[in-house]
Design a protein around this nucleic acid. Structure first.
Lengths: 209, 209
DNA sequence: TAGATTGTTAATCGATTAACAATC
DNA sequence: TAGATTGTTAATCGATTAACAATC
């Protein structure tokens, strides 16, 4: 793959993957870009462009083999790798993330939780220990970690990100309502729940609903 | 405002709003588009374009008054309105949403929760009652509802969306990993947590981190 | 083979960025 | 006034869509 896939295209890959899972579950063997587009409210052209960036996985006159394309996408998405994951901040959303079933299935290994509340430190959730946030640098030095989930309060998020980056974490999944500044080489993906709700509020009040 | 704001621009408005809240908190009185851009990792041009679509809120040679611009954005985002909100599906994320403090501050009134588990029906969380999912049509007929949050399992999400739309809900905040089909006139905003994590996985495995 | 559908290039569209005159 | 910075138009860039030859 020459160049780089656009951010927008990359964000569509998991949707394709999900749709293919669904088709496979239903026992569908082949699918054309046109069918996929109809099912997903997209366009055949866009789907072929997105997929073709990574390789010619289809067959003229036939379309795509569902299982085959799904396997290609799994590999493209890095689902064949195994990544270690920690969660910083075991509050409201932190808890929900920890209780999420499905990390393991997709190759994510949740290895530690961090919090600064004495009430939580030392306990464990779903078999994953809650460690003192102050011990994070030492932990990361001992346990190479790929991805960190930031669920701390807003005021603590940037300092947490700094510690994580310094500790070698390469990807941050940020739930704190803060625009993080991270060194080059660290990927950030934001889930700003309140922002997302405000977009709905905007649409409601502008009659776009 | 003629025409329509682009989806991308609308999604940036909450970020501007958040940054202005922060500046106001710090006691900053004025800010230029250039300063905002530097703080948010954006560009001055884009910020001026985004804001100017809604009105000329700045002053040449001066910039923007922080509180004034924030107030304009609040109104644009619909934060002066009061929207009623229900949550369908009180599982893992559903719980986190219900426990989220900050709806009330922003004019969102959480009025009811729905679930189909007998263990939950009849109980209440944070003073909000959990009703039988089967009673949703009747509830919506009695209690006009603006926004619904879908936190059901994937297999129940589309049917829930259908019921909500039929009941007059105009905006759906969807946490289920499903591409919903809704009638025209219903806005949907998806928060696909797994998809979001897969984007990080992609970036890790492609050295974009 | 004829029909279908991909892979891929070209055309269009929209969003971002740059530039600059207006003006505080 | 001189300096700064907006509001706004024009230029650029990138992403989406359309078209079609390749080919299964």
């Amino acid at each position: 793959m020459p160049g780089h896939a656009s951010e927008a295209a990359v964000r569509r890959l998991p949707l394709y993957y999900r749709q293919l899972e669904e088709l496979e579950r239903r026992g569908t063997v082949r699918v054309s870009s046109g069918e996929l587009a109809a099912q997903m409210g997209s366009t055949a052209s866009q789907i072929r462009q997105d997929i073709n960036f990574f390789g010619a996985f289809g067959q003229q006159g036939y379309g795509y083999n569902v299982s085959e394309l799904k396997a290609h996408l799994a590999k493209i998405l890095g689902l064949d790798a195994s990544y270690t994951l920690v969660v910083a901040g075991v509050g409201n959303i932190g808890h929900a993330i920890v209780n999420y079933r499905g990390f393991a299935d997709r190759g994510f290994r949740l290895t530690a939780l961090f919090d600064s509340s004495a009430a939580l430190i030392g306990s464990s959730i779903n078999g994953v220990p809650v460690l003192d946030a102050a011990a994070m640098p030492a932990y990361l030095a001992e346990n190479p970690t790929d991805i960190a989930v930031i669920c701390t309060p807003a005021h603590a998020a940037q300092a947490t990100a700094d510690t994580l980056a310094a500790g070698g974490v390469r990807a941050i999944w940020n739930f704190a309502p803060v625009t993080l500044r991270v060194p080059r080489g660290v990927a950030v993906n934001n889930v700003h729940l309140t922002d997302s709700l405000l977009v709905l509020s905007y649409k409601l009040s502008h009659g776009e609903a």
